[in-house]
Design a protein around this nucleic acid. Structure first.
Lengths: 343, 343
DNA sequence: TTCAAAATTCAAAGCGCTTTGAGTTTGCTA
DNA sequence: TAGCAAACTCAAAGCGCTTTGAATTTTGAA
């Protein structure tokens, strides 16, 4: 049978107070006493009862997640990968999850309900949209939260973790331009999500700076699936002057795009160049493509784990992570990019 | 501010005991009193504090999940979809999750740790392997659990939910045979997972019953990804006599297989037939393929939700679900199957 | 009308932890 | 050697719920 605090204290001839303090790192405990306590914990395998802790501290010890169940988002590979990171870190701190699947139009209500339930002491928001009303709502909720991504068109006065999507696609586009490409296409994520908007902006900026026009008809929005990637690329090939290079918002999209490229008999990296954003999905490594893909890389799992760490630290009031983080994606050149073909 | 039980009882001029009993459906409460309590709950928006409930009842109110982080399984689309179902049902009962990512060789230890931690009052096991030692371990753990799938080679004396994989692929293979196909290939899931083993067996049985040989070289195991599906199909096409039909263990695999089929210029449903197992992934609908796929269908999300319901009912000792369920997959014929081509 | 049984209701004791406010030691200064 | 702050340690009071065992009221047969 598991021991509890009382028994542990008895064994040690100490009061529960002291043992509790020793365990929770309070300073007013004699170093030697603390060592005794810790080794007793090791021997007995004592684990504090989380329910009791929660009751006593008023902290729920869990993080609320709203799992979007919209078409093309839910059970998205990307979400699963992110979740793995979140889980990894949470479990380390013995935190739970409350996963709330919710339709997009019901998300705000879901968040409110979650926060009010007292069952979670932090919330997490993803799939940020352009002028996302959910952020203002979260701010009003007086419960810690972290946004994965950033809104556009409102001050960024809330905790977030985002990657610098603008810079990533700026860098990618610039490389292509330097390689001589002039007709560059974009297969982006859903149009209403901010990461898509920023990636497009990054690409536009690179073109502008080099005096090149941005051709709206060479830019498509799509769900982050193979299928849509394929469809989008096919449409580009129906043009009189197909693009000589393409940027993809995900390696999953790239999968479909590469398929379309092969189908028309072009050689990737020679006849046409491709750069994809790589979320480091373990089942889809850019280096395993028949022609390894040049990518902008940033691990989604790492982001999940970081967000969990930040949320938990906010809840426990320990450590001090920065409140806002903008990660820079790495541009990794592989074989799928090459000089523009002579036309 | 949220009211608590004490305040609620005071308002009603009742004792906490009575209110608590009224809420938890105990019989010894006057019907009228119960009504008063319930309407007071509605007015005040009272929600019991879960931590207190957990502490008092000794139930953790959460389900332990071991999220496999092996290559090709983790952040698997299929897992995400299953999770959505599990989440849907759990949240309805205010249950939490504890997601424990774990490497395969550490899974047993992870389960033990979870069970011992007292943080969960039910466990869930998936990705069952042939003679899975984890099941015996779960049985020894004296904590409710449900297995998604079934082991092979040991008595099925534990709670499970599985689909009849043998029957599904038996039916699928039989249809192909009836259509005149003789060389039927199989692109299966990982070789060590029981669903793969059973699907293969189902196919073998159908062939045998019709006096056809099972050609081991026409059977491949693969991760459940597009990439591997593509690769496997390509290999079949390198044979002197390629198959005229193929069974795929997932629509994700089918995606790659179809790609390979297109590449060699064959017409799906005419030159070659394909049947895939459809887990009802919202992002990959068989009817959306350029040639709609014939499938054996069983919703993974529904399975998740059912398992959650069963676990919760076991924990709360309410209702009585069957302990073992074998769901039958539906065989849905679409355009990807047709008579075998004249050779 | 009476009284035991059935139907309700209640006070109080936990569940296992944290934390407050008050002791008890110890170490220095004067 | 007294006296006081600093360093430790402790007893006890919750946190908000469930549940036990007892008290009270109602019901119905005698």
């Amino acid at each position: 049978m598991n021991v509890n605090l009382k028994q542990l204290a008895e064994m040690l001839g100490l009061s529960q107070t002291t043992v509790s303090r020793a365990l929770n790192g309070y300073p007013e405990v004699n170093a030697e006493t603390r060592q005794r306590v810790l080794s007793a914990v090791r021997e007995t395998g004592y684990r504090p009862n989380r329910a009791a802790q929660r009751l006593a501290t008023g902290r729920a010890g869990s993080i609320g997640l709203v799992m979007p169940i919209a078409q093309g988002i839910d059970s998205d590979v990307h979400f699963g990968e992110f979740l793995a990171g979140l889980g990894e870190e949470s479990v380390r701190h013995d935190f739970h999850f409350v996963i709330n699947p919710s339709a997009p139009d019901d998300e705000e209500a879901t968040f409110k309900r979650l926060a009010a339930s007292g069952n979670v002491d932090a919330l997490f928001l993803a799939y940020v949209r352009a002028n996302d009303p959910r952020i203002a709502m979260l701010k009003s909720l007086s419960i810690p939260f972290v946004v994965h991504g950033r809104a556009i068109g409102q001050p960024a006065d809330y905790p977030f973790l985002d990657i610098d999507n603008t810079a990533a696609f700026y860098d990618a586009a610039r490389l292509l331009i330097q390689l001589g490409h002039r007709r560059i296409a974009l297969i982006n994520g859903p149009a209403n999500l901010t990461f898509s908007i920023r990636r497009k902006k990054g690409m536009q900026r690179a073109l502008e700076e080099n005096g090149l026009p941005f051709d709206e008809s060479l830019s498509q929005h799509s769900l982050m699936t193979d299928e849509y990637g394929h469809r989008a690329m096919q449409q580009f090939f129906e043009r009189d002057e197909p693009p000589t290079a393409v940027l993809c918002s995900s390696t999953v999209i790239a999968l479909g795009a590469v398929r379309a490229i092969n189908k028309v008999g072009l050689q990737l990296g020679t006849d046409i160049s491709l750069i994809a954003h790589d979320d480091v999905l373990p089942m889809l490594k850019p280096e395993n493509f028949s022609v390894p893909l040049t990518t902008t890389r940033s691990s989604l799992r790492a982001a999940g784990s970081r967000i969990a760490a930040r949320l938990i630290s906010r809840i426990m009031k320990t450590g001090d992570y920065p409140d806002q983080e903008l990660w820079r994606a790495e541009l990794i050149v592989r074989a799928s990019t090459g000089p523009a073909p002579k036309s």
